[in-house]
Design a protein around this nucleic acid. Structure first.
Lengths: 270, 270
DNA sequence: TCCATCTGTATTCCGTATAAGACAGCTTGT
DNA sequence: ACAAGCTGTCTTATACGGAATACAGATGGA
């Protein structure tokens, strides 16, 4: 059973940062379960902060249920701390995964407006200047925990084929194909960003937390841009995984992504 | 010519965060060049901070040369603000890219120690308990701007085939292959993290900035783990790009990564 | 048993980030 | 010419994060 977290992150600058870092170290397994972490004094010295600050971070971690502290003994990483539900996007099976995500998670439509395309969107989709797009914002949730914040832009003439109700229930891919769009390819770009206040609240992370950011431009078979996606993921609940195969190629050689048959169990509990 | 940045990021919590966010918006093109951004009052209200805080963020942006402010007129995004050198890892050509990066960038060896493998590393590489690894930390730089922080772990018996001098000059792939390792495949995981003080200083970003994090486990043809890489990239200088092709597959269909012949121009100026 | 080490708790003090408000001067558009 | 809106500059006041310090109690190992 996934433990409740987000028990009020520390307010201060250094305190919260230390909290986020320790938290990540624990979730990543840098401090294996059951390990005693360095004493408060040591942490304070190591991170160049006062012990009060360290304590604030530890208190938050304790509230999250990630550690247990005992006077005299020390601070331990709780067993089971690492066991969190997480979605891992093995991208060899990307599309089936997305379908599966659509089933296993719930989406909430936050907003849906029709307006002139922002310059960057218009450029990415290669739309002529006075172009209008439908801009929809959705929040995906897995087991009551929000894990992704999606902003999609679709040219108005395509978007007019489906309703807002559709948006709340059906993956956008389906809607596009139902609208007669023949999806051909996509360009995807992965980066990291900070959580802005607004997004942070929705994703239930602290402001300034790191988020995984994916931007995707989808083209149909005529080369026309049909969707611009800007997605933000909680790194503790979603990561992007891939398997690469080495292709020996004489001098240099290169890597090739492994393309396998779609497998099941795309939503992984660990 | 890349403009000098990092003109002292704001010290305060909210101020720096606002700075980082605005900066990213600008570099991403959310505020196209020449655009006037919202007035200070508006920004203050929108981000729920005082105007003083907004000003601090704007001052830092101005020091970076990203914006120009004029009394009465407003604050504009400078033309040329977006023009930064950036490396984009189109992963269909991953290996040639890495070779190219090795040529176009410079690496500095920060440390290199032999020690028992940390638990998480040992687990990932599937090493028997009393396993020793070589742990090397390197910093990659493009045009005097640091852009990645690499920590590699290699089993000691393999690492003993090359010297520290090799590490500073030659990509690790080469060294492994020269050591007789037959690289077969790799598992890669992409996430986002916050910059810890130590790393932040090395990468010349402000503490708490968002970084792109890649972890990679490399296996040889016998399935043995030969390298564990933990890499941190500056998102403004490096992003992970890929092209996906839609494979119509009846009901669901899926995406397949595009595997192309290695192309040139892997290090892109834009 | 003694001692080192850890957390639990409380106190004091300081720097400064932030908020709130006021006003002058410059631009731009009506 | 006027008004609206913007930045530049200054003021005052508050809140709070953070450092430094001290001590008590718990724990576990020598």
């Amino acid at each position: 059973m996934p433990r409740r977290m987000n028990g009020a992150t520390p307010t201060g600058e250094k305190a919260r940062r230390l909290y986020l870092m320790l938290r990540e170290d624990i979730l990543r397994g840098n401090y294996p379960e059951g390990t005693r972490l360095p004493g408060e004094q040591r942490l304070a010295a190591g991170h160049d902060v006062s012990r009060v600050t360290v304590r604030r971070a530890l208190e938050a971690l304790e509230a999250d249920g990630l550690i247990s502290r005992r006077a005299g003994s020390g601070t331990q990483v709780r067993v089971g701390a690492t066991q969190r539900t997480r979605i891992s996007a093995d991208f060899a099976t990307l599309m089936p995964l997305l379908v599966e995500i659509g089933r296993a998670t719930q989406a909430r439509l936050l907003s849906c407006v029709y307006a002139p395309a922002p310059a960057s969107v218009a450029a990415a989709l290669m739309l002529p200047p006075p172009a209008r797009v439908q801009t929809a914002v959705r929040l995906r949730t897995l087991e009551a925990q929000p894990f992704s914040h999606l902003t999609t832009h679709v040219p108005e003439d395509i978007a007019s084929h489906f309703s807002e109700a559709d948006l709340a229930t059906t993956p956008l891919f389906r809607l596009l194909e139902r609208s007669g769009v023949k999806i051909d390819s996509a360009e995807q770009s992965v980066t990291a960003t900070l959580a802005a206040p607004e997004v942070a609240e929705l994703l239930e992370v602290s402001v300034g937390a790191a988020l995984l950011s994916i931007e995707r431009v989808v083209l149909d078979d005529t080369g026309r841009g049909v969707e611009y996606l800007s997605a933000l993921y909680r790194p503790d609940m979603f990561r992007f995984e891939m398997t690469l195969n080495r292709i020996s190629d004489g001098e240099s050689g290169h890597w090739a992504p492994l393309v396998s048959e779609p497998k099941d169990s795309s939503v992984t509990e660990r």
